[in-house]
Design a protein around this nucleic acid. Sequence first.
DNA 1: ATAGGGTTAG
Length: 936
Amino acid sequence: MALVAPPFSCRHRLPIHGTAHRSNGRCFLKSIFIPQASLSLTTQNHQGLSLTPTNTSNSELSLPQEINKLCESGNLAEALVLLQRDSDNVAFDLSQRAEAMSVLLQACGHRKDIEVGRKLHEVVATSTQFSNNPVLTTRIITMYSMCGSPWDSRTLFDQLQTKNLYQWNSLVSGYTRNELWYDAMSLFCELVTVTEHKPDNFTLPCVIKACGGLLDMGLGQAVHGIAVKMSLILDVFVGNALIAMYGKCGFVKEAVKVFEYMPERNLVSWNSMICGFSENGFSQECFDVFREMLVGEEGLIPDVATLVTILPVCAGEENVEMGKMVHGLVVKLGLDHELMVSNALMDMYAKCGFLSKAHALFEKNDNKNVVSWNSMIGGYSREGNVGGTFNLLQKMQMDNEKIKANEVTILNVLPVCLEKSELLNVKELHGYSLRHRFQYDELVANSFISAYAKCGSLSSAEHVFYGLEAKTVSSWNALIGGCAQNGDPLKALHLFLQMRYSGLNPDWFSISSLLLACAHLKSLQNGKEIQGFAYRNGLETDPFIDEALNLFRQMVSNGIQPYEIAIMSVFGACSQLSALQLGKEIHCFALKAHLTEDIFVGCSIIDMYAKCGSIEQSQRIFDRLKEKDEASWTVMIAGYGIHGRGKEAIELFEKMKRLRLKPDGFTFIGILMACCHGGLVEEGLNYFDQMQTLHGIEPQLAHYSCVVDMLGRAGRFNDALKLVDEMPEKPDAGIWSSLLSSCRIYGELDLGKKVAEKLLALEPDKAENYVLVSNLFAKLGNWDIVRRVRGRMKAIGLRKDVGCSWITVGGKIYHFVVSDMMLPEAEEIHKVWRRLEEKISGVGYIPDTGSVLHELKEEEKIEMLRGHSEKLAISFGLLKTPKGVTLRICKNLRICRDCHNAIKFVSKVVDREIIVRDNKRFHHFRDGFCSCGDYW
DNA sequence: ATAGGGTTAG
């Protein structure tokens, strides 16, 4: 094939750029990789290219020539005056006048001068000779769309009595030019279905581009089909448009196919191909195609578009060697003064870490625009160079070329404000963007939301968020991510729900943030808050953690590799739900992804199995861990703690000390909890003492809480109160509430009253506390006080958290709310329980109506007990699982005395192990006994 | 008369 550059590219480019390539006749590209033969073209292309021939030898210019001269110097208004003045001049015939109008219309389009364009339109429309001139109307349609006002194009188009294909094409291209992809598509449909016109090689490229704009690959394929049927696929423009469209839609393979089968290719085809690879992250392919384009048999010379496509690839890959080579090519082609090229070069050097080289280019270049400044500012910003960034920003504003900052500037500067969490700078920048109306840009607004959140100013973040007119998934994500990362995980979850209610679908970012929130929430008591939250918000289906886990699965099955943090978060979420099956599944995934060796992930896995009730599995994982640190030992000890296996916890703790590992504050929380749940009071007190004397660890509130709880449960109220007095910190509500429940167990009415007062004074707006207080008095039959407490609760509008239990069957989590009559299989479930109740009554079960806090008749109380959610969950589990399978139930509140008693009997009569996790610990029921030894 | 590829951020 002859190495002839297609005339198209230059003809197309020249009117825009105005400069032609210079060639000194030498083979200037040889040193890179261009074959010599390609050379002759540059000069050849040069000829006959000027827009309109000007006849300078003749002092008498024709009207079109004169208009053209004025247009070239930018005097469009003058040209219009000239046209109008000579409207009666017979010296100019009609065709000359029409041509002159054409020239002016074109110039209006190029220079976006809609004022003059509109006046000229009026002139044409009101004249009898020209109003129906199809050439002129086409030009007016084009002019309006080039001025960014395709609506005016449409108005004129609709007024036309008859429309030819030129006019249709002009309007379609006007829509695509203004990125009104949908309008372009529907106009095309109209053209095909309503008119006799057949779309041609001018129509299709626009339509194909619109498909790309809509990112609608299906539509694009359909148009591709039309192109094939009409044999328009042979057209270079159509082929090029297809390459670009497939690239935009993410189907590079299709783009390559089109490229390979094209009967004729030009520079644009190559550029589009490189661009397609670039957009889809195939950097090596970009370089390969670029090289092939230069040295292959077609041997084309790159133009500005090629260079500004390939340079960002070098930048993205930080491949400065390639970048330098392209730079050499740029110089040899004489394109180093092209603004876009020099900008791309600067950006490339900056991104490759050669900031001073970039700066040198920047200084040398006196032709700068916003992009130039932004690229440099971005360079300093990425380096975290606060001074350099702000210095440039200031210089930019003082620059006498009056280049104004834009949205990208803001986006570049914002990250450096976060370097030192500079809230002040963020606020200042925000003020600036408000004044310049940049906050209407979605990206800018979202960046401010996350920036404020990162600086710890959630309220400002929310302020920006709620001020948004249209909230997209990204806006929600910015706020959700901010809350998740900045210590308000519950708010993150709340927002997640709100987003779903507003009809938006969460994406991967939302889910990651949610997972992060779940990880932070691990410290909350077994997800109790989350469950309560979900139910208070009327979430009837599975709670969102469940959904997050489902989405995590999708993420995995879509081949998206989660980071360690995501894995850990998911384990955290499993722990909260006690979703053993799911936890196992994710454990398998982590194994396959070789993430289990990670010391943190290993830790989460141990924690997950323990919190999902499978302490033996935790121990196995723990034993196999190659690398164990203090944290690994601590989660293992704490795991035994929540299972009430104090002895094992103590063994581990002693072993840990023998290995000379240093227990820290967290380890002591674990061991104290273990002693507390295992009823090992003396041991616990001993460790509490050791912790201070031997290890020099100052006990925190959490340690005191454990010990006070431990003493209270053992009925040693004097010791407990003594410790409360000795505490350096003020006791919190947790301490009072644990004491209060101990008072209930031991019937300590007087102390209970005092403790209740303290608790309600400290946390007057927490429903749980009122429930605790009323439980105490209800147990003693003091209904008067119960009624008063309940009344007070009602008066301040508090409602008790709904009791809720859940069980996993077949990988799905089923929830049961107390006295839930809306259950899908309510009939069967209740029947199962009735039968069980008969059976266990035969072996000694007597309903413990003391657990019912309402004033009801005895029979009604018994009916209430039957509705407790854990009983429903167990009945469901028995109904749905084969004989002998262990049932694992979770509950958001503490298990009641009657249920605890009943489940002991059930475990005996159905001969199954039943594991219940309440909001404090695990209960393993087997053969009529519970692992907690009725001490909880 | 009407057409395809292109720099900064995400």
